[in-house]
Design a binder for these strands. Structure first.
Lengths: 102, 102
DNA sequence: TCGGGTAGTTACTTCAATGTGCGTACTTTT
DNA sequence: AAAAGTACGCACATTGAAGTAACTACCCGA
């Protein structure tokens, strides 16, 4: 692979169709699976599950299971590592907004 | 489509396998096709051509043809618009580097 | 008991991005 | 004369990400 472009390391993690949206959605705090789905209505359950699993493996997302014998309850949140991307994400967002207006 | 996630507008433009590398390569100034290929050895001619054309259409890259009757000479460079992405790209790069060391 | 909510899994299919391999046309260098 | 450089275009094959549709399994309220 040896890209030697550090930007690729970031984009391998945050790139793709849904991960940026998942990231933005989780920026506001921990959410349950169905909350994320409501925030990103067009993503299917399967794909959202896949993305969350992958982000978990990459150390970007924490999955915490609060389920009891009575209730299913899982929460997803960004890790410390992931929060380090916020400046970059904000910069991308503001560029996206500016670029759009023209 | 209506993503309502501005970050997507940026990533639709700079996302993908090769565009970030093309962007980074052109950050240092205008380059000829073959120079870009040398900087990104694994990209095929076809794909690089495709990417440059798409980036041109998106207003990210200028293609200037300096060819004479004697010599072929085409140069590619980033547009003003594209340069606005530099802060974001730098942030992604530095995160990529930090994230890598651990 | 019927509809709705929570959090998934499994099997299958589709499609766009990417890659391969060829050809064009003209040039300079050896 | 032959090889190599510059800058592509075209047709086709491959692949991996994403989508579809079904199923599991449990709970709650009307």
């Amino acid at each position: 692979m040896t890209t030697s472009f550090p930007v690729n390391r970031a984009l391998e993690i945050i790139g793709g169709k849904w991960r940026p949206q998942v990231y933005c959605t989780l920026q506001d705090g921990p959410l349950r699976f169905s909350d994320i789905q409501r925030a990103i209505p067009d993503v299917s359950r399967k794909v959202l599950t896949d993305q969350l699993r992958e982000l978990e493996q990459l150390g970007m997302v924490h999955r915490v299971d609060y389920s009891t014998e009575k209730h299913l309850h899982v929460e997803y949140s960004l890790t410390e590592d992931a929060l380090g991307l916020q400046p970059a994400m904000n910069a991308l967002c503001s560029w996206g907004e500016c670029h759009d207006k023209k």
